[in-house]
Amino acid sequence: MDTSSGIQEPFDLIRLSLSEKVFVKLRGDRELTGVLHAYDGHMNLILSDVEETIMLVEQVEGGPEGQTTVNVAKRKMNMLFVRGDGVILVSPPSRT
């Protein structure tokens, strides 16, 4: 029951990312990168050296239907708790 990476359950992927820089995709068009220090079964996370990217998609004024611009806002946070219910995806970003 072993795949190439020796992962038996999805949480193993997260456990192996402890103290590593991870990429987190959240609800509300938000993304985080930061160093993972803790998680639990809800996917509550504690990250340090966090950079948050917020994608703000806006309809172009007077433009054709469906034409949008994506405004990107970034901010940095030192130590952050992330509530698990907003998490969509977690990935160790180094080996993309």
């Binding site: 997260i14 969509i88 995806l89 977690v90 990935s91 180094s94």
Partner: peptide, 24 residues
């Protein structure tokens, strides 16, 4: 879900690639 060699597709176009991905 744990996925390997993952491609993210948003309405038909690849928007991201991940070596490993955990999906809640």
């Amino acid at each position: 879900i744990a996925l390997e060699q993952t491609e993210e597709h948003v309405n038909g176009t690849v928007t991201n690639r991940y070596g490993d991905a955990f999906i809640r």
